[in-house]
Amino acid sequence: MRWLGLVLLGPALWAVVFSLVYGLHGTLCATASGPEDLGRAARLALVGAWLLGIAAFLPVFALIPERSGQAANLPRIGLWIGLVATLFTLFPVTVTTSC
């Protein structure tokens, strides 16, 4: 049971970070007046939230030891899935037009 919980940890962390950044972005755009860009402060907030989200993975990596065998190592692989997903799905905070 605990093992299953650990397996879910990495992707769940991605889900949390993704929702938070998406929610933050939605809130910022909803309160913004004009179209297009939000300005520097808002972008910094978004990038910051993304980086924090990535950083959140590091302590968890320390928590979950590497194991041999792909199946037994699933919690660790789950973390990688979560981390790659966080990097990949949220990198647009750095490059795209915000609103």
């Binding site: 004009g34 179209p35 297009e36 990949f88 647009p92 490059v95 795209t96 037009t97």
Partner: peptide
């Protein structure tokens, strides 16, 4: 996939309405 996504975002940025 990354290449495809990159191309898509690049085109997207270029055709977006601007001020």
């Amino acid at each position: 996939l990354s290449a495809t996504l990159g191309a898509g975002l690049w085109v997207g940025e270029r055709i977006l309405p601007r001020d």
